[in-house]
Structure formats: structure tokens, C-alpha cells
Amino acid sequence: MPERRPAQLSFVLYGELPGTGAVTKEGAPVLAALTTDRMQIDPDGSFTITVDPEPADGRPNHIRTTDTARLLIARDSLNDWAKEGPSYLEIERTAGPEAPGPRTPEQLATQTADLLRTIGRYWLDWDNTFIYTKAANDIIAPTAPRGSGFGFATSGHFALGAGQALVVTLDPVGARYLGFQLTDLWVSRGSTPTDRAA
């Protein structure tokens, strides 16, 4: 990890690429998750995680995978992008069948186009099912942690009239990381300057 560590580094094992399955409130199936608050990290910031189908049996930082696993995502949560740095990761394959060879540019282009069509439809359906069915200008507090163990999240939509403004007041309530995101109707988003440490 860098000298100024991110507020949290999380590893999430999914049963499918988010946005390629059925539109459900839970989203893509989370098979396992590991976050830095539950990891053994050396004083210099280094760590090793293991990923295989066997139980941990005393191994720290272990993620148990299954035959249905399709994707492992690593996510750095940064509070101060000017001072904190992302984690540096190296991946070493130590066992298992031979890895498939690289795909051709044509194969990559075809797969990317197919994913864009699939994922685009998914997120539009998700918004219409779980966001725009709620009352405008009404954000409900989250009541349960996300399936990945990556904190809490809630969402909503806003409808402002002429001369009105959206004023957002956030209380980090002791959290190490707090984020607020605004998107357009196409869910094009970006973190706002309100991302901060507690």
C-alpha cells in the first residue's frame, strides 16, 4: 500500500459481471468480500491475499472462490486524491489449468460492443425500476450494509423548479469515507467535492 493509504481497499468476488444479469435490488451476486478493516497488513503496508476454492484454515486475507465465480474487483476508496495513493497490486498464478491466451483486437472489440449493449440496457432498467419509482426529492436513509461489505448506500432522484436549488448537508457520523455522487439521466457520473474523510 502507499504511504498515505486509501480509507479502504476492498476485494469483491462476483458470480457475474455487474450489469449482465437480472435486474434485482441486490445486483450481481456477491460470492465473497474482503476489506482492509478485516485484513492482516504488515507495518510497511504490504499484504498478501490468497484466492482458491479451499477454506482459509488459518490463512489470513483469504478469499474462497467457487466454480460460479466470474470476476474479482479491487476497489480503492480515496478521501484526498491529492495526498492518498491507490494500492499497488501484483497477481501471481500459482496453480490451476493453463491460463487462456490473449484475445485478438477483433475479439476484444466484439466483446466490448456486446457488453455495452447489455450493460447499458441493464442500468437504464435499474434506474426505472429502483430509482424513478420513488418520490422525487426524497432520500431514504440506508438500513442495511451492501452485500460486498463496502459500507452503506442509498439513492434517489430530484425534480427542481425554476429558481430552486439542491442543497445537500452530509454528516459523516464517524465514517472513514463519505461519498456523494450526482448523475444525469444516463447515469453518467462523477464524484463530487463532498467526498471526504471523517
Rank of each mutant, 00 (worst) to 15 (best):
residue 38 R to K: 10
residue 38 R to G: 05
residue 39 M to H: 08
residue 39 M to V: 00
residue 39 M to C: 07
residue 39 M to A: 09
residue 39 M to D: 06
residue 41 I to H: 00
residue 41 I to D: 08
residue 44 D to H: 00
residue 44 D to Y: 04
residue 46 S to K: 02
residue 47 F to I: 03
residue 48 T to A: 15
residue 48 T to L: 12
residue 48 T to E: 08
residue 48 T to G: 11
residue 51 V to M: 10
residue 56 A to Q: 05
residue 56 A to M: 01
residue 56 A to D: 01
residue 56 A to P: 00
residue 59 R to A: 11
residue 59 R to N: 09
residue 62 H to Y: 00
residue 62 H to I: 02
residue 62 H to K: 00
residue 63 I to Y: 01
residue 64 R to T: 09
residue 64 R to V: 06
residue 65 T to C: 03
residue 65 T to H: 04
residue 66 T to M: 05
residue 68 T to S: 13
residue 70 R to M: 11
residue 71 L to M: 15
residue 71 L to C: 05
residue 74 A to P: 09
residue 75 R to A: 09
residue 75 R to V: 13
residue 75 R to G: 09
residue 77 S to V: 06
residue 78 L to E: 08
residue 79 N to S: 08
residue 79 N to K: 03
residue 80 D to K: 02
residue 81 W to R: 15
residue 81 W to F: 02
residue 83 K to T: 10
residue 84 E to C: 01
residue 86 P to W: 07
residue 86 P to G: 08
residue 86 P to N: 10
residue 89 L to Y: 11
residue 89 L to E: 06
residue 91 I to P: 06
residue 91 I to E: 12
residue 92 E to L: 10
residue 94 T to N: 11
residue 96 G to E: 09
residue 96 G to S: 10
residue 100 P to L: 04
residue 100 P to Y: 06
residue 100 P to V: 07
residue 101 G to P: 00
residue 101 G to Q: 07
residue 105 P to D: 02
residue 105 P to C: 05
residue 105 P to V: 01
residue 105 P to Y: 00
residue 108 L to F: 12
residue 109 A to N: 12
residue 113 A to E: 07
residue 115 L to K: 04
residue 116 L to P: 05
residue 116 L to D: 14
residue 116 L to F: 11
residue 118 T to G: 01
residue 118 T to D: 04
residue 118 T to S: 05
residue 120 G to S: 11
residue 122 Y to M: 01
residue 125 D to I: 07
residue 126 W to C: 08
residue 129 T to Q: 06
residue 130 F to Y: 15
residue 131 I to Y: 09
residue 132 Y to P: 07
residue 134 K to T: 15
residue 135 A to Y: 06
residue 135 A to E: 06
residue 137 N to L: 07
residue 139 I to F: 14
residue 139 I to G: 13
residue 141 A to M: 08
residue 141 A to E: 04
residue 141 A to V: 10
residue 144 A to R: 12
residue 148 S to I: 10
residue 149 G to M: 02
residue 150 F to P: 04
residue 151 G to I: 04
residue 152 F to K: 11
residue 153 A to H: 10
residue 153 A to S: 15
residue 153 A to P: 00
residue 153 A to G: 13
residue 154 T to M: 14
residue 155 S to N: 10
residue 156 G to P: 07
residue 157 H to W: 15
residue 157 H to L: 04
residue 160 L to S: 00
residue 160 L to N: 00
residue 161 G to V: 01
residue 161 G to K: 11
residue 164 Q to Y: 03
residue 164 Q to S: 11
residue 164 Q to C: 03
residue 166 L to T: 01
